[in-house]
Design a protein around this nucleic acid. Structure first.
Lengths: 219, 219
DNA sequence: TTCGTCATGTAATGGGTTACATGATTAC
DNA sequence: GTAATCATGTAACCCATTACATGACGAA
């Protein structure tokens, strides 16, 4: 019950995979690192966490994360959430999915944000999917502009012009990204299995234990 | 009951002010002219229309819009909606509002789309509101980038970089628009009341009676 | 006669927000 | 001792979507 699909679950699992956190902090990260697009509220976050616990993807642990300073007497309850093995597995399945959802406006951003944990071929597929999605949209916009009836006033026109430019810009951006993904050795359907190491610089995941500084609210 | 505020109502009133239409056509216009951003479905449109009728802002009229060709036997029911005097008044009130909602992502686009029917000072206020909203956002992004802890991987970084560029681009766009609005004579809080005529070319509103061509689905 | 498009509608659901309630801890 | 921030949670609502049901009409 309560499918709890959607973007939030994905983001939560992704962030918790990097390191365990409690809800309050999780929400902040959601609205800074990833939150350029969306801002989540506690009203959605906590129920989501609960559901994930019930599904066995997360476990709750009592407070004091790892900070030896300020050790016990952690503020009130302070429940730290950690991914279970099952949760990890589930997240990896989600990462591997390249369904048409992956390149819709809302999903794409969050997918991209976790590209660091995504295999190269999935990355490329998502980028290409996104690009062709946008190209469809462009075609439609151009068609609608050339339809001379349906006369729009100057403002509507300006709005569409600006919109189209934005989309074109994103297409160029995607093209660059795709090329640079391919540049990392890959003649397409040849090599038995890529070794991935220097491609993105291989940033270390899971450094575990965040600095004791909570940093301020986004307001 | 059923507040029915939101964006849809605004768009519906705005489109119907330009000329009466039936639901099906309305929806198409929603998804082409204005729909660069949002796509509405019948499931929201029809209930909205009904509510507006109940509130006395719209009246339903039976079929055959004004097309002398294909005169009677119009496809099934075909209910044409027309703004009442009260509806018109209500829409004008909405147009005049410059509450902080007006420059949020979702609202701004639709507000802009009806700038043709908006007075210049409101236009400027909305544009400026939007711009300072985006500038706030930029400041926040820059702050979060300079916070060196909170180390993000390359992809997250790239995403934020691209996001910031997009926002900066929109800010420049807004600035140009604001300047060109001001260029239309206006030394700010001086002139008793502007006469508006040549500012946007004064496109004729309300040409009344749309062409008999329904134009195709956006699919 | 069947298919595609036009055309209208409803019930169930979805995925989130707002506002509220609670309380501990820290800084002044 | 009081205000701000940290921290967790719930209930009520919002605004829309999906899937479905219905049916007329024109063209192949």
């Amino acid at each position: 019950m309560s499918r709890r699909s959607g973007i939030l679950e994905f983001a939560v699992l992704g962030l918790l995979r990097e390191s365990p956190m409690h809800g309050y902090e999780l929400r902040k990260r959601l609205n800074t690192s990833l939150g350029v697009f969306r801002a989540f509220s506690y009203g959605s976050l906590y129920p989501c966490l609960k559901a994930l616990v019930q599904q066995g993807r997360l476990i709750e642990e009592p407070g004091n994360t790892s900070e030896d300073a300020v050790p016990l007497s952690g503020r009130r309850g302070r429940i730290v959430y950690r991914l279970t093995a099952e949760g990890k597995e589930h997240f990896e399945e989600l990462l591997a999915q390249t369904g048409p959802d992956a390149w819709e406006d809302e999903h794409f951003g969050i997918r991209f944000a976790f590209f660091g944990q995504t295999s190269r071929d999935v990355r490329v597929r998502v980028l290409e999917g996104r690009r062709s999605r946008l190209e469809e949209r462009l075609a439609k916009m151009r068609a609608s502009l050339s339809r001379t009836r349906e006369r729009l006033d100057d403002y509507t026109l300006e709005l569409q012009r600006h919109g189209m430019e934005s989309v074109e810009r994103e297409v160029r951006w995607l093209t660059e990204l795709i090329e640079s993904e391919r540049a990392g050795r890959d003649r397409r359907t040849d090599a038995p299995e890529e070794r991935q190491s220097e491609e993105t610089g291989g940033q270390p995941r899971h450094q575990g234990g965040n600095p004791p500084d909570p940093s301020e609210e986004t307001t």
